[in-house]
Structures are given as C-alpha cells and as structure tokens.
C-alpha cells in the first residue's frame, strides 16, 4: 500500500500498531505466567502477574488516547477507518485478556489454601491458549488473514478441551466433596482460559475486517471462509 501524502499519519498508525503489539506481548506473557503460577503453586509469580496487569491497563489507556487523536485529526476513511475501528476493539479484547490472566493468578493465590490434587489437563489447555494468542498476535502484526482464520477454526478445540476438563473436575467433586473448593477454582481458571481464547478469536475476526472489510463475527466458519475466498463477490 502506498504511503499517505501526510507522512505524519503513517508514523502515527505505525506507532499505534506497535503499541497494540507490545500490549499483546504483555498479555501473552501474563497468560503464561498465570498458568505457570497455578501449576507450580508459585505465590510470588502469581502476585507479580497481578501487579503487571496494571501495565496492560495503562497501555490500553495510551492506545485509546492515540486512537482518539487520530480520529479527530485525520478523520480516517476506508482501510484506515477500519484499522482504527479494529484497534479500538482489539485493545478492549487485550485488556480483558489481561484481566482474565490476573484472574487466573488470583485463583492461584486462593488455591494455596486448597491445593488441588490433580490439575487435569490445565497444562495442555494453557499451552494451547497461549499458542492461540501467539498466533493472533503474529497474524495481527503481519496482517495475515489466513493465520487469523486458523485461530478462529481452532477456537472450537479449546472449547472441547474446556468441556472435557469441566466434566473431569465435576467427577472429582462428586468423588470427594473435600476437593470441591480446589475444583471450583480450577474450573474457573479453565473458564478464564477458554474466554481468553474467545477474545483471541475476536481479535482475529477484527483483523479480517480490517484487512478485507468483511464482518465475519456472527457468521459460521464455512460462510466466513467462503466470503474470504471471494466466492460471494
């Protein structure tokens, strides 16, 4: 894509994108740390993760300010407009993901008094969700809609993982009521991970809107794939 006549505008858009990506980086690390703190029952790491969420929130405010500035000064249209609109949504999603990670870390703190006997497949799910987030950010930084599409497709597997884990935890609780507290905490953690993955999906959908101009948020995957392959147009 050629440069804007106003070079400053290009710089602002680049800066904004960088800011969003660095926010994404923080979120990615927060997820990893949160899950690790749970698995290792590491109090210090959990507290650090909760503390670091403030940085993510600060970045969100900064991004919002930049977006507002660009909106009022550049009055973006077409691709630029979609980019700005997308960023507004993406930033909210990232911030929610940060909050959810902090939620996981808080789960760790609570679970210290009720250490779970079994983490079920939390480790796998954590890795997969992290992978989803990582893919999303990569797709976002490169404008890679195919990768984004893969994220959207793979979200279903996360859902399956969550459901499986939920059932497993349920069985533990039925077997031994003393495990109930720990299992509820774990189940909440899994729910948070599942929602983090949902937000990653949102971001990927937004990316497709930014790049292609098609809104695929509420259509099923096949229709979305068709839209993107250009069959309908």
């Amino acid at each position: 894509m050629p440069q804007h006549t106003i070079k400053r505008f290009d710089e602002e858009l680049d800066k904004l994108k960088e800011l969003v990506l660095s926010m994404g980086g923080l979120v990615e690390r927060a997820i990893g740390h949160a899950v690790k703190s749970m698995l290792d029952q590491d109090e210090a790491l959990a507290k650090k993760t909760i503390e670091r969420d403030k940085a993510i929130n600060a970045l969100e405010v900064q991004c919002d300010e930049m977006t507002r500035d660009i909106l009022v000064r550049r009055q973006p249209a077409a691709g630029d407009l979609r980019f700005i609109m997308g960023i507004i949504k993406v930033v909210t999603d990232l911030e929610r993901m940060g909050d959810l990670s902090a939620g996981i870390a808080e789960g760790t703190l609570r679970s210290l008094e009720h250490p779970p006997k079994e983490f079920s497949n939390l480790s796998t799910m954590g890795k997969k969700v992290q992978k989803q987030v990582n893919r999303t950010l990569n797709a976002f930084s490169r404008g890679d809609t195919e990768l984004a599409m893969r994220v959207i497709e793979k979200d279903e597997r996360i859902d399956v993982l969550y459901k499986r884990m939920y059932r497993e935890l349920l069985t533990y609780m039925i077997e031994d009521p003393r495990d109930i507290t720990a299992s509820i905490i774990l189940s909440n953690v899994a729910k948070n991970l599942e929602r983090i993955s949902d937000h990653a999906t949102n971001i990927s959908e937004m990316l497709i809107y930014i790049e292609r101009g098609h809104d695929i948020r509420h259509v099923d995957h096949e229709a979305a794939a068709k839209l993107l392959s250009g069959e309908e147009i």
Binding site: M1, P2, Q3, H4, T5, I6, F9, R74, P76, A77, A78, G79, D80
Partner: peptide, 9 residues
C-alpha cells in the same frame, strides 16, 4: 479509490 479517500494519492 482506497488510496484517494485515505489520502495516499
């Protein structure tokens, strides 16, 4: 069109 309305002309 995109280039024109986004100021990339």
């Amino acid at each position: 069109t995109e280039d024109y309305i986004t100021g990339r002309f």
